[in-house]
Simulated assay, not measured.
Amino acid sequence: MKKWILSTLLASTLVLTACESADSEETLETDNNETSQDSDVTDQEETTDSSDEETADLEDDTEEEADVAESIEYLYEVSDNLAYINVIDGKEANKQVALLTYDDAPDKHALELAQVLVEKDAPAIFFVNGMYLDSVEKKEILKEIHEMGFAIGNHSQTHPSLPTLTAEQQTEEIIKTSDLVEEIIGTRPRFFRAPFGQNSDHSKQVVEDEGMALMNWTYGYDWESEYMESDALADIMVNTNLLVPGSNLLMHDREWTLEATPAIIDGLRDKDFELLDPDLILSDELESEDVSE
């Protein structure tokens, strides 16, 4: 009888112990689950906060860029014949200016050109062809050139003679490149130059609808065989009798042009030409607002 009582007591004790252990494990599991849920909520809150901060930063950057754009006073405009840069009527500005422009970027030497221009503190427009923006590397080069402070212009997608294309093809040549540029640098080009300087009534209308300033050039030589050498090119670009106040200098993404650029800059400055900042040139989207000021 005593053995039976002892056995019963022992069994009861084991059952109670097992129950307490199960309760303890269940409580621990519940606590762990609650802790995990709390951690997940915290992580989600932190992720949301981080995302909100990034969005706020982007909005701040956009607002700052807009503020800068609004603070610029546009002093110059492209001449009616598209060859020169003139002071806007009623504005006070230096007429002894020359505009540096480089077409067919970013082919091979655009980034090096930009670096030389930065070293010489010389502004310029890089007119890009969409066909050169066909890789991550080229897109990064364009982004870097833009971040160095240079204006990015539209030079069409594949460098065709626009008047030989249908209206639809001309539109695609222009819009596709503007879309690509915007995708890469965040803003659309404000300037357009047609390949070979060949415009059509339709291409002009597309450019106007896009709010871009249409321009050709005053002179350029670096595609002619006798000037595919840096010394000869630098000499003609500075000493041609075509150099006048408001000249728009056409150059290209070429090795000899890269080598000639420092001497061209120095030569222009020696002749008391100010190198014009493209940010001061009016584009069609701004015309009605700024000219009336």
Rank of each mutant, 00 (worst) to 15 (best):
M1A: 10
K2C: 10
K2M: 14
I5S: 08
I5W: 11
I5P: 00
T8N: 03
T8W: 01
T13H: 08
L14S: 00
T17W: 13
S21F: 13
E29T: 09
E29L: 10
Q37M: 12
D38S: 11
D40R: 14
D40A: 13
T42W: 12
T42P: 05
Q44T: 15
T47S: 12
D52K: 01
E53W: 07
L58T: 12
D60S: 08
E63P: 00
E64H: 14
E64G: 02
E65D: 14
A66N: 10
S71A: 07
E73I: 13
E73P: 01
L75W: 01
E77P: 07
D80R: 09
I85P: 00
G90R: 06
A93H: 05
N94M: 10
L99G: 10
D103Y: 05
D103M: 04
A110C: 04
E112L: 06
L113C: 11
A114C: 03
L117E: 01
V118G: 03
E119D: 15
K120W: 08
P123V: 05
G130I: 01
L133V: 10
E137A: 12
L142W: 02
E144R: 07
E144I: 02
H146Q: 02
I152A: 11
P160I: 02
P163Y: 00
A167Y: 13
E168I: 06
Q169P: 13
Q170G: 03
I175R: 14
I175H: 08
D179Q: 08
E182K: 13
I185V: 12
P189L: 04
R190C: 01
R193P: 05
P195R: 01
F196A: 14
Q198S: 14
Q198F: 06
D201V: 05
S203D: 12
Q205K: 15
E210M: 14
G211C: 07
G211P: 07
M215H: 14
N216S: 15
Y219C: 04
Y221T: 02
Y221W: 01
D222Q: 11
E224W: 11
D235E: 07
N239P: 00
T240L: 07
N241M: 03
L243N: 05
L243E: 07
L250G: 02
L250W: 06
D253Y: 06
R254W: 09
E255W: 10
W256A: 14
T257F: 03
L258K: 09
T261L: 15
P262W: 06
G267V: 09
L268H: 13
R269Q: 11
D270N: 14
D272G: 07
E274A: 09
L276I: 09
D277M: 02
D279A: 02
D279F: 10
L280T: 10
I281R: 03
I281Q: 03
L282S: 00
D284T: 06
D284G: 00
L286I: 01
